[in-house]
């Protein structure tokens, strides 16, 4: 569904991502794990065209999207929920959700999606008329994911959904990610919490200083000694 082939990305002279390749197949949850600065977020930002790759090619559903503009990519159903949630503080919860459906024209369908989001996140329904800026971190993350779902994503890119959340909320968010996937949305997940990410993902790519250093089935990687030592906090 999504193929990233040999992309390199630079911030000025700094090479943030070096010749990375990976793919996501329809129906999968794929995760990119790795430490701070490994190039995970940069990879997502390159896919959604917020940054341009210096070289390489990205295809989504057999179309080359490398040179498309961000809004054209959104129109194709490739939706990116950014790091730090980016909830519009002066918009109500409802208006934030509506903004997620910005490119959709089917009014009835939008309302239907909104109901679905409210069923999935009853807390958001309670806070429907509250301003986005007044929500707690966990609620904001739910809103961010809900806003992503409002676009009817074919592929959902999630950047650090567990960032700054308590362990209980983190569990909750990952459970939500799992159910979203089970309902048919393909997910590319970026996480520093490698343990949780490997629980929910089918496959994983391990990034280190801008390169893919390992990849494979989550279950296999979970048991890999080097992974356990480097990311799961175990003494080798």
């Amino acid at each position: 569904m999504l193929t990233v082939r040999n992309i390199s990305v630079y911030y000025g002279a700094i090479n943030a991502v070096q010749d990375i390749s990976f793919e996501v197949k329809e129906g999968e949850v794929v995760t990119l794990i790795g430490a701070n600065g490994a190039g995970k977020s940069t990879s997502l930002r390159t896919i959604s065209s917020l940054i341009k790759a210096k070289s390489g090619e990205i295809t989504f559903e057999d179309k080359n999207i490398t040179t498309l503009k961000p809004h054209q990519i959104v129109a194709m159903g490739l939706i990116h929920v950014p790091e730090g949630r980016k909830i519009i503080g002066s918009f109500t919860v409802r208006d934030n959700l509506k903004m997620g459906a910005f490119l959709r024209k089917d009014k009835a369908g939008i309302l239907e999606s909104m109901e679905e989001v409210f069923t999935r996140f009853p807390r958001l329904k309670e806070r429907e008329k509250q301003l986005g800026g007044t929500l707690s971190g966990g609620e904001q993350q739910m809103l961010a994911i809900g806003r992503g779902l409002m676009a009817k994503p074919r592929l959902l890119l999630l950047d650090e959904p567990s960032m700054g959340l308590s362990p209980i909320l983190t569990e909750e968010i990952f459970e939500i990610i799992r159910t979203i996937n089970q309902k048919g949305t393909t997910i590319l997940l970026v996480e520093q919490n490698a343990y949780m990410a490997l629980q929910v993902a089918h496959r994983a790519y391990v990034l280190e200083t801008g390169r893919v250093v390992m990849s494979g089935d989550s279950n296999v990687l979970k048991d890999d000694k080097r992974i356990r030592a480097a990311y799961l906090g175990e003494i080798a």
């Binding site: 959604s48 065209s49 917020l50 503009k69 961000p70 809004h71 959104v74 129109a75 939706i79 990116h80 929920v81 950014p82 980016k86 519009i88 503080g89 002066s90 918009f91 208006d95 509506k98 903004m99 997620g100 910005f102 490119l103 806003r147 676009a151």
Partner: peptide, 24 residues
């Protein structure tokens, strides 16, 4: 209006607006 919502979102953050599908 929708254009107004786009304007307010761009005013919040350009990249966030892009990810909502707004032509910034």
């Amino acid at each position: 209006t929708k254009m107004g919502a786009a304007m307010r979102t761009v005013s919040f953050d350009h990249d966030t607006a892009r990810l909502m599908g707004v032509n910034v």
